[in-house]
Design a protein around this nucleic acid. Structure first.
Lengths: 189, 189
DNA sequence: TACAGTAGAGAACGAACGTTCTCCGCGCAA
DNA sequence: TTGCGCGGAGAACGTTCGTTCTCTACTGTA
């Protein structure tokens, strides 16, 4: 038998792909079982319920998002570049054929009013992103009020790209971010 | 018996409130029946399926959105003011206790990958909003590239406010919109 | 009054879901 | 080898849902 950690990862990975592609409620536990190659009994020994699996999947997504963001800003040499790297990261993501919007936004829309655990996890992820942006804004020497504006641009780009099915929202948001950065740093200098 | 138009409106109205509050899939047709006071038989004579009802509800939301936007910009005397009125409209909306995000975004996240009818309706609504903004931007004498930036701000404010559960995203987005407008009209002048 | 047509209330049906249970086979201690 | 415990496969269970069907009551007409 495969060890607990490996089984857990296989289940979360399979559930993540299925939930993201089809929506959480559209995917049954049987489909997760088949895709993960882990028996239902085992799944329910690892997660008490589907709700718990959903939260585990969201946490997994958070880790992927964080590492993606970190690696996207690796080449950046300034805080300003690291901020704009967020939108380049979004652009690359939007171009992936599997892109279907932000999993957190989608899951919140689907279950946010039914499961407080889901709502809390999503809110925490967005809060962490806002904090990340706020730190970059501070590093760039811009006033703190700029941070939520940039975060809103990133959020809006994600939903716009998801619904339109096209990636151009990324560079549109990037251009807006550049303008806001220019004004904020010029005024603050 | 009440006439067809009244029955239709009662069903759509009741379904709209329930779908928006709890999510589409979480609401059964029985609940719609009870809330609307229209028998299941009648509902299914008005709408061939739940999917068709969902689309009717989305179209109903579109009408509400359009009139809300129109009345919000009534007092505005310039294109710039009409643009900013969008964000004042969002602010008022976010403060309503029943606010739970944009119904189109929520429904798209829930059913966009399962129902092409839903995906198409949502895409069309967003396209119409982009067109509305584009017209205002043209009226303001700003370059066309500003329009999608403003639309992205509006979208981002809606998801941010929905997830955070607080209304401040509206004025943050409004401030960003003002900055972008200032820059765009100054450069274009 | 008798009758035809229609609509409402909700029971019924078949499918699908989350979750649990049963059965079977395998690995290991003595 | 014999027994035992554990895990895999998936059947089974109870519920819920979308949709249809049945039964009853009522309306309007002669």
């Amino acid at each position: 038998m495969i060890d607990e950690k490996t089984a857990r990862e296989a289940v979360v990975q399979a559930a993540d792909e299925l939930f993201y592609a089809h929506g959480v409620q559209a995917v049954g536990m049987d489909a997760v079982r088949t895709a993960a190659g882990v028996s239902l009994k085992r799944i329910y020994s690892l997660f008490a319920s589907k709700d718990e699996l959903i939260v585990a999947v969201l946490n997994h997504r958070t880790a992927i998002w964080d590492t993606g963001l970190a690696s996207a800003s690796e080449r950046a040499t300034s805080a300003r570049e690291r901020i704009l790297a967020i939108f380049d990261f979004l652009d690359a993501w939007f171009r992936e054929p599997s892109f279907r919007g932000c999993a957190f936004i989608n899951t919140h829309g689907e279950l946010g009013s039914t499961s407080t655990a889901v709502a809390d996890t999503v809110r925490e992820q967005k809060r962490a992103f806002q904090k990340y942006v706020a730190q970059l804004v501070a590093d760039a020497g811009a006033p703190p009020a700029l941070a939520p504006q940039l975060a809103i641009l990133a959020e809006g780009a994600q939903t716009t790209a998801a619904i339109a099915g096209t990636p151009e929202a990324a560079h549109q948001a990037r251009a807006a971010a550049e303008t806001l950065l220019d004004v904020a740093t010029a005024a603050h200098a």
